[in-house]
Design a protein around this nucleic acid. Sequence first.
DNA 1: AATATTTGGGCAAACGTTTCCGAAATTCAT
DNA 2: ATGAATTTCGGAAACGTTTGCCCAAATATT
Lengths: 348, 348
Amino acid sequence: MNNVTLKMLAEELNMSPSTVSRALRDSHEISQETKDRVKALAAKLDFQPNPHASSLRKNKSRTIAVIIPEIQNNFFSQVMNGVEEVARQKGYHVLIYLTHEDYKREKDILHLLRSGRVEGVMISVSNTTRSFEHLEAYCKEEIPLIFFDRVCENMDVPCITTDDAGAAFKATEHLLKAGCKKIAFLSMAGNLSISCGRKSGYVKALTKYGLSGSELVIECGPDDEANRQKIRQLLESEQKPDGIFAAVEKFAVNTYEVSRELDIRVPQHLKVISFSNLAAAALFNPPLSTIVQPAYDMGRESANILFKIIDKKKLLSAEKKMVIQSHLIIRESTTSKQYAKPSVLLKP
Amino acid sequence: MNNVTLKMLAEELNMSPSTVSRALRDSHEISQETKDRVKALAAKLDFQPNPHASSLRKNKSRTIAVIIPEIQNNFFSQVMNGVEEVARQKGYHVLIYLTHEDYKREKDILHLLRSGRVEGVMISVSNTTRSFEHLEAYCKEEIPLIFFDRVCENMDVPCITTDDAGAAFKATEHLLKAGCKKIAFLSMAGNLSISCGRKSGYVKALTKYGLSGSELVIECGPDDEANRQKIRQLLESEQKPDGIFAAVEKFAVNTYEVSRELDIRVPQHLKVISFSNLAAAALFNPPLSTIVQPAYDMGRESANILFKIIDKKKLLSAEKKMVIQSHLIIRESTTSKQYAKPSVLLKP
DNA sequence: AATATTTGGGCAAACGTTTCCGAAATTCAT
DNA sequence: ATGAATTTCGGAAACGTTTGCCCAAATATT
């Protein structure tokens, strides 16, 4: 650890610590000459102010926390990317916490962060959290908090989301236009905002096309084999769907696995579309149609808004509930025509 | 922010701060009765010790840093997962920094961390770093440091790696046994330890099978289009290979893209294998044979070793240079036989 | 020339914890 | 009963910065 302290600089320069401190921060009450001397020595000795002393005194840690359910998910890792970019520019540090979709961990982490370790928190809640008391308790501490993607809308906290319902509507509509008559929705268990939004878009599309009542919602979870089992049952049942809309990438993967296993051809017998931020979806067999969320932008905007709160700037009303559009990428897993030639769709 | 301090507890209880502090830490010099009273009030008021004050006084931050080139890469996100797990168990916090493969950023980050903000650092160096001065300067500060995956072997710092050369040898051998006569190696630009290791395994395998001199190494980089251009040239040249061994997943993706574009069939005309931690590789068209690195374990072990150093425990010699085995997963992109039925290879 | 203002910088008190040192009070050995 | 050892706690200094307040000298103002 760097041992040179501000006091040592002061002693070496025959000045008081306060002068050195002010000189380093370019205070107007220090002469240019003194500033130069101080900075020269500081640079020479590679002086770094002790962050803990500084944090203690100023009650500012220059650190934010990001709490996400998992990191092995392209959506969240892209978000992290956006957050890190903004934080770096602001000279802030980023703590990362994973809940592994576990309510208890989420609660523990939030509790940990109530001590001033960070100046703000961004969170995407786990799908096992039913109660929001831990979040409300956190808010009482008056440390800036924002939600992204998986939000809790009835709290007075800024939310950065994508248009889940709208995108789900478009995806379902796309399946319908591609000829699907019976579409199943693979939803994430729990009561997440995104699950509800996506489901409502799905239902709305079915209703618009006169298929209300034919909803088919399957709740999937973290366990691959359990999911495959459910999908297998679904695809072997009476009400076998000809289209599947997966709420998250993982379930689309499970669907692909089962359809291969059962020799069900995509898209001829079954069309598949999914929320996914996986770049390699284009290389799947067949290439997977996806709804891609603006993950990087969501991370960036979330961080921007968080810093606005930290800096005590007023938020525009648009920033209190920000919605960034997702977009559809149509690939072969949902084409109605004959199997298209891959290269056509792949050309950059 | 939680405003209740240790001093306030002391006042409320008519005790000195030192007593309260000791009581909370279960010091033997405090009576059980006092401890109970203190803890009761602390719990009631939800007292949380100020981490900065504590860090300042004890010169311990209970925080480690992980520096990685990028997060949008399954390998690194799995590593993060392992690290977070260990850190959480130890009650440590994890700062994340991304270099984006940029030497300057890497240098800046390491410089930032020389102030005692963290108790230890784990790093996987960027592929644009040629000089290691910034790392050596960091070591001088005597803050624990360890390398993982992309290491700098001639520094006296623990390294956690996988058997790059061995795995590359096996992958190349596998291509040869599958009938390849001319194998190209898509390497990452720069002088990374992993690039060298993987290349040497590749060369060794060619040599063993009497093909020394037929090495074909293409240096790829971060830009997809540039990579595709290089691969396109390669596949259209005189020395068109019938096998490609990609050092990283990204290049395999580029290869798939180009081969579709040029109507080159995998594996019939070209066999492809790659280092990759992408679970969805099994769903590619055709399913991609991969060398998967034990990313999660590497993260876990790295963190374990880092904490051993932080806790000033002696490292076993095996822990100073730890190597964890990667393993091959053979899929259709390298099968020599007729195109196998997908479901056979996919059954769990 | 006397007063007011600015400039440049030092003193010392914070921030909240931890810990060294010592002081009562109690227990124990003799 | 006396001294020694133990238990239990408080005082105060420390960790390294920042900042409110003050003061001297220099400059500006009347």
